[in-house]
Simulated assay, not measured.
Amino acid sequence: MELSTFQKGLNKDNPYDFSALKAVFLNCTLKKSPELSHTEGLIKMSDAIMRANGISTDIIRPADHQIAFGVYPDMTEHGWDRDDWPAIQEKVMAADILVIGSPIWLGEKSSIATLVIERLYGFSGEMNKQGQYAYYGKTGGCLITGNEDGIKHCAMNLLYSLQHLGYVIPPQADAGWIGEAGPGPSYLDKNSGGIENDFTNRNTTFMTWNLMHMANMLKNGIPAYGNQRDKWDNRETKDHPNPEYR
C-alpha cells in the first residue's frame, strides 16, 4: 500500500516511540489466500502506517485455517478433530493491538467475523498476571468494506464485542469503504474510487494513530484495583449472592 504524502509526513515527523508494540489484523474475508481480498486492501493501509512507525504486525486470514466452532479455548478438547484457533489466539494475546477487518454481507459482518468473535470470547474467562480478565490492557479497532450499507452497523457490533471482552476502544476506532448500493466495483477494483477516497483514508489514518497512541498508553496495563475477579469471588461479605437456579 502506497501511503499519501501527508501520511508519510506524519510517519516521518512522529515524536512517539511505538517500536515496542505488536499488532494483529484478522482479515475476516470469506476468501482463502491468495485470492484478492478487498478488505485486506484497506487493512494494508493501516498496516503500512504501523510498520512505518516500528510496530511489528501480522495479517491473518482465518479462512486459511481450520477453525472449529465453539466458545472454548481449544475445541479439540470438546469433540473436534482439529482446531487451528489456539495458534491464532497465541498471536492475539502477544499483540497490544487487534484490528478485525470484515466485508459486509446482507448488512452484517461476515460469518467468519462472527466465528472469530466467538472464539475470542472463549478465552475471555482467562486471567492475566494481575488477576484481571485476559484482554485488559489491549486495544482494538475494526475496518469494514463492501458494496452495500452497513459500515457503522458492523463496527458497532465488533467494537461492542471487543470492549465487552476487555479491549479498550479509542476514539474513532473504525473506518470503512462501500461503493454504490447494489452490484458494482469493490474497494480495490479499477475506477472504484476506493483507494482515493479521502473520507476513508482520513478515518483509517485517524483510527490507526489512535490505536497506536492508546496501546502505547496502556503498555503498563490498566490499574488492577476494583476489577480483579478473584477478589470479587473470594470476598468475605456477600451481601447479594447470585440466586440459586433450580
Rank of each mutant, 00 (worst) to 15 (best):
I104E: 07
G101L: 10
I97G: 02
Q130T: 00
Y121F: 13
G101V: 11
K109N: 14
G107V: 08
L158F: 09
N147H: 13
I100H: 05
A113Q: 06
D149T: 14
Q130I: 00
D149V: 15
V99G: 07
H153M: 12
K138C: 05
Y135K: 01
S111K: 12
G125S: 14
L115A: 08
Y135M: 01
Q130S: 04
S111E: 14
Y121R: 10
L162G: 05
G107H: 10
I117M: 12
G107E: 09
L115H: 07
P103V: 03
V99K: 08
G146Y: 07
P103Q: 05
A155T: 04
L162E: 03
E148K: 09
G101M: 11
K129V: 01
F123K: 11
G137C: 07
P103L: 04
G146H: 05
G101E: 11
K152M: 14
K109L: 15
S110L: 05
C142W: 13
F123L: 15
M127V: 07
L120T: 00
E126I: 04
G107N: 08
P103E: 04
A113I: 05
A113Y: 09
Y135E: 02
C154K: 03
I151D: 02
G140S: 08
G146L: 06
T139S: 05
E148Q: 14
G101T: 08
A134T: 14
N128K: 00
I97N: 03
L98T: 09
G140F: 06
G101H: 10
Y133I: 04
G107W: 09
N128F: 00
K109I: 15
S111C: 14
P103N: 05
P103F: 08
L120H: 00
K152R: 15
K129R: 12
I100Y: 07
L106G: 08
V116M: 11
Y136C: 13
T139I: 02
W105P: 00
G137R: 04
C154M: 04
I151T: 01
I112F: 11
S110G: 08
Q130V: 00
C154P: 05
G150T: 01
A134F: 12
Y136H: 14
S124M: 13
W105H: 09
G125R: 13
L143I: 10
G101D: 10
Q132P: 00
S110N: 09
S110H: 07
L159T: 14
K129Y: 01
N147Y: 11
G150W: 00
I104F: 05
G122A: 11
N128L: 00
L120N: 01
T145Q: 08
G107F: 08
